[in-house]
Design a protein around this nucleic acid. Structure first.
Lengths: 244, 244
DNA sequence: CAGTGGTCTAGACCACTTT
DNA sequence: AAGTGGTCTAGACCACTGA
């Protein structure tokens, strides 16, 4: 038998367990002891524990010392994990939608003081502004507005190139890998062109993400604002005492 | 030298590193190699790695394979991590406030259909309803409304007992340990008695958490709604591609 | 190619839950 | 008392980065 190490053993164990959980392969919701899993799968207990830790962190299972490891039924309600949203297209797919993307604008702009501070550039510096609308079945669900320092962008992109997910754009056209976002969650009342684009009456309560994206070196490379139609996109989150 | 194992070695290493980061003990933001840390601290590399993994998950450090481990400066802006909020009093303390708590009501109520579904009880069943207001310097910041199935509650609590954090109340008066919440993040316009209690003009955009709390066995034990004054409490979050 | 983090092993002992 | 997850060790080898 060949041992394939990519994906890693830990990831293979995770996938195996997730699959078995999905198929209802653990009656009573009880997962076998770690030592048993290790023996069955032919890996060390450490590897099994690593996989279970990560599944616990995702909320898929719960571990109780001295008792056992159990499937966490309530968490199956969570469609997409807020901390792991990476592409709004993917998020809508997770919600069971079949979204389409419309690029509204790909055009130059100038940095406001806020932009400049977040992106660590000079106020008034040139930006590339990309606005996109994510549409589910004729109903606009998400509007995003990305601002990228012009000095990072290689050439002048076309609308077609703006269609790609922003992390892909940053990688292909700017040579930077997006590592993470810091996001403020802001409640707003939709107004003006945002309300119009989202086809919602002015004054509709909505969530807005105000966020800055950083590359692997910890430098800011993109500032984004996103507005969500609450009736189409609902964020759900697991909160817990501390990290395991 | 005595080796104290509580808190665990891993937690001690985490605390040590966090402290050193806070004091600016890593010029250039570069953290020493894992093997070096292990030797210096007299623990195994596994323990160091465990600590670093957890710090990375909290966003405190970034690891780059083949390169090194680095302090993650931007994340120092995050005051309280959304996924780990456990007590609103503590959250306000993290924001730099000195909050006080006012218990508005501790009284019986009956379950709506929504309550009943979330709490897995019969519609119309008896509840204990606790409303609390968290106040920062005369300005109300958070209003919470907790609903607990009456059958779980031991006796009829006084307002004084309602003052404790809800997880403490559940542990002391119901004998259940709160393990985690599933929370919906809902944008609203403040109206009626909620607006009044929060001393905000009707129509003010605000965030509302609609959440269900579960015990260690995965059974729902409390349903909570919380409203926040956006000008006093701002939620910030780190979003990232996947769990490490 | 030297140095770093990433993965994995086998085994020891501890703390807690359950019977 | 038996069984479970929790912590920790020492050591091996791999994958990637950067000079």
């Amino acid at each position: 038998m060949t041992i394939d190490r990519n994906p890693s053993l830990t990831e293979q164990v995770m996938a195996h367990l997730k699959d078995r959980i999905r198929r209802g392969g653990f009656p009573e919701g009880r997962i076998p002891p770690e030592t048993e899993l290790a023996a069955d799968l032919g890996v060390s207990r450490t590897t099994v524990r690593d996989a279970l830790s990560r599944l616990e962190h995702e909320g898929v299972v719960v571990r109780r010392q001295g008792s056992g490891t159990y499937v966490n039924r309530p968490v199956l309600q969570v469609k997409s994990r807020l901390e792991e949203i990476w592409s709004y297209e993917q998020m809508l797919l997770d919600h069971g939608y079949t979204p389409s993307v419309r690029v509204l604008t790909v055009e130059p702009g100038t940095a406001t003081d806020d932009d400049a501070e977040a992106l660590e550039i000079a106020p008034g510096a040139e930006l590339l502004v990309i606005e996109k609308l994510f549409i589910e079945d004729d109903r606009p669900a998400v509007l995003t507005r990305n601002r990228i320092p012009a000095c990072l962008v290689d050439g002048t992109p076309s609308a077609t190139q703006g269609r790609a997910p922003i992390y892909e754009f940053l990688e292909d056209r700017c040579g930077r890998r997006l590592a993470y976002y810091l996001s403020d969650i802001v409640p707003v009342a939709l107004e003006g062109r945002v309300a119009e684009a989202l086809d919602a009456p002015p004054g509709t309560p909505a969530l807005c993400f105000e966020e800055t994206g950083y590359d692997t070196a910890g430098s800011p490379i993109v500032k984004a604002s996103s507005w969500f139609r609450d009736d189409l996109v609902r964020f759900r989150l697991m909160r817990r005492k501390s990290g395991g």
